[in-house]
Amino acid sequence: MHGDFIYTVALRLTGNHHDAQDLVQEVLLRVQRGLASFRPGSLEAWLGRITTNAFLDDVRRRRRRPVTRLPDVVELVAPGAPRDATEALARDALPDDVTVALQALPEDYRVSVVLCDVVGLRYDEIADELDVPVGTVRSRIHRGRAQLRRKLA
């Protein structure tokens, strides 16, 4: 199911359900606008690229206008009944270990690792996507995995 795929990529990139949900909404709008640009091929690769680009656009936007957001942990333990079932579910679902460990990586490493190991792109495809040399991609993926291993150990 492709919705879960997008959501998984979004969660791995953003690290929390709240931001992942926002990212999914943006991705679905972009998918709708981009239907015409889809060419037969890997649908997941296409969706993964759109998700990553939307994420990076958001990161750049935040860098220009930094906003302070309380960490999700605060929301998760905040008192008060959730407004609806969806919200309750999102609150109950703590990010898994992999998602938490990914958040500890520098963003450059995280994006490359997610594109490689979650979306399934090849190094040259990731290099094209991020506009960096293949050697840089290889190095980011390797360092990212090494750090991830230490976090998960």
């Binding site: 998984t8 679905l28 991830l148 291993r149």
Partner: peptide, 18 residues
């Protein structure tokens, strides 16, 4: 590390997200 990501089950999107 590689397998922990590749073999992790997809996260099910909460209802309503999609």
């Amino acid at each position: 590390a590689r397998r922990s990501l590749r073999e992790a089950a997809p996260v099910i999107a909460p209802p309503g997200v999609i």
